[in-house]
Computed example of a mutant assay.
Amino acid sequence: MGVEFVVDPELDDDLKARIVALWVDVTNGGGAVGFVAPVTGAEVWPTATAAFAGVEAGLDRLLIGLDDGELVALLFVTDNRFGLKDHWRVLKRVMVSPHAQGSGHGAALMRAAERLGRQMGLAALHVTVRGGKGTENFYARVGYREVGRIPGAIRVAPGDDRDDILMWLDLQQ
């Protein structure tokens, strides 16, 4: 059975808790989604609450992937909050459950995000990638191109600075 993608699901307490649990699992599994492992749910909740608020306010969109009811993937499509950038959005917190890595769920999630972007009438989607993990290669395989790099912009630990890689998908092609 394939993954079912749902746009803007009802953000009830159960789903919020499942999102935070996934966020913790992805971070602790080596994912670069705003934290450095090890992380706990208590540490993720404040950032998650802010992300949920953007969705609940109607500014941002949430895209989740369910595999037989289990939350296995998600991302936030965030508004730029600046009128001159209304024609494109930023994908944030792109994550796939560690136990589902290599299953094609990540590529399917990105295709679903692209479909959503096109339905929204957007010109492009943007994602930032933490260097040092090779994740930019995944995004390149699904059609994104590197448009910039800020050297050493992300400090994951003292003496361990990573590039912030800017990736772009033109939806007008």
Rank of each mutant, 00 (worst) to 15 (best):
G2D: 13
E4M: 14
F5Q: 06
V6T: 14
V7C: 09
P9Q: 06
L11A: 07
D13P: 10
L15Y: 05
L15P: 10
W23I: 08
V24M: 03
D25N: 15
D25T: 14
V26R: 00
G29H: 03
G34K: 09
V36Y: 05
V36E: 03
V36K: 03
A37V: 15
V39P: 02
E43D: 11
E43M: 14
V44G: 08
V44M: 05
T47A: 13
A50D: 09
V55G: 07
G58I: 04
L59G: 10
D60H: 12
R61I: 02
I64S: 01
G65M: 13
D67F: 09
D68N: 11
D68I: 00
E70G: 10
V72T: 13
A73R: 02
L74W: 12
F76I: 10
V77T: 04
T78W: 00
D79L: 08
R81F: 09
K85M: 10
W88Y: 15
W88C: 12
V90M: 13
V90D: 15
V96W: 02
V96L: 11
P98E: 07
H99V: 14
A100D: 09
Q101D: 07
G102Q: 00
S103G: 08
A107H: 08
A112Y: 01
A113N: 01
E114A: 04
R115I: 14
L116M: 06
A123H: 14
A124G: 12
H126M: 13
T128K: 11
T128I: 07
V129R: 05
V129G: 09
T135V: 15
E136M: 01
E136H: 02
A140V: 05
V142L: 01
G143F: 00
G143A: 01
R145E: 13
E146Y: 05
R149Q: 01
I150W: 07
I150F: 05
A153Y: 04
V156T: 15
V156R: 11
V156L: 08
P158C: 04
P158F: 05
G159C: 03
D161A: 13
D163N: 09
D164E: 12
D164I: 08
M167T: 02
W168Y: 11
L169T: 06
L169I: 06
L171Y: 02
